[in-house]
């Protein structure tokens, strides 16, 4: 389970946000551009410092500013697929998927075996030796997902993973995300703009507006007044 409380003064407003996601649950984080979604994810990942924050993952404290406790980003074991730059374009698909495993200094046979397994899970095994920069948008997202899950993370975060994907690829990425989040029983946060995506993938949804939580609940019950994109 993930529990995070954070306060950070930004240029136009203060991000004052609390989020709680159960193991095996997908929380879709919604809000207009600049509402603080990516900032919140970056704080949880340890890429950005908050003014005050407490982040607990599966009972282990990752960050608590009042105690000066801060687990370094590389040790947080969070699978984070950032917006746009999903894969390392100069590496092959295999090297992308194996990146986190090699960084954790696992033995060669283990790296090879796990990378092959995850490429198989994501249906990208036949692309193993292709340079990731040459893949389509949907394939890149699957590579990024495989790479993030291969490290057996305690938390999965996807920042706008469906942007620039066609309908088929979007559905594939959604299905794979749901399948492995449930299977691995890890909390998952998916940032998305569209209510349709949120309804389909999210067990719960949370709407951020200018750094404050505007609404939280079951995606299908989201009231019309929420500041989110309702395009199909």
């Amino acid at each position: 389970m993930l529990e995070a409380v954070m306060v950070k003064r930004l240029r136009d407003y203060t991000l004052d946000f609390t989020i709680s996601v159960k193991s095996g649950e997908i929380m879709s984080l919604m809000g207009l551009n600049g509402s603080g979604k990516s900032t919140a994810l970056n704080i949880i990942a340890g890429l950005l410092e908050a003014d005050t924050t407490t982040i607990t993952l599966h009972g282990e404290c990752l960050c608590r500013t009042e105690d000066d406790l801060d687990v370094p980003v590389e040790d947080r074991r969070i699978g984070y697929v950032l917006q746009n730059s999903a894969v390392f374009p100069h590496m092959t698909v295999r090297d992308n998927v194996a990146f986190g495993l090699r960084a954790r200094r696992l033995g060669r046979p283990v790296v090879a075996e796990r990378a092959a397994l995850w490429m198989d899970h994501m249906h990208i095994g036949d692309l193993a030796d292709v340079r990731a920069g040459n893949l389509s948008g949907g394939q890149k997202q699957r590579v990024a997902l495989a790479r993030a899950l291969a490290i057996e993370p305690g938390l999965l975060m996807l920042d706008e993973p469906f942007t620039a994907l066609d309908a088929d690829s979007t559905q594939t990425v959604k299905d794979l995300t749901r399948r492995f989040v449930k299977k691995m029983q890890i909390p998952c946060i998916v940032v998305t703009h569209r209510v349709a995506d949120s309804t389909e993938i999210g067990d719960r949804a949370c709407v951020l507006c200018k750094g404050k939580k505007e609404w939280e609940g079951i995606p299908g019950e989201m009231p019309e007044i929420c500041s989110v994109c309702r395009c199909a």
Binding site: N42, V73, E74, D75, R76, Y80, Q83, H90, G100, A103
Partner: peptide, 27 residues
């Protein structure tokens, strides 16, 4: 260079030096 590449490498467990040599410099 989009910092997202380096940030991704860091979240995957790579040290600053490893990120520099395997991501930043090759790119």
């Amino acid at each position: 260079l989009d910092p997202a590449y380096e940030q991704t490498a860091r979240t995957l467990g790579a040290s600053s030096l490893r990120t520099m040599t395997l991501v930043t410099l090759p790119m």
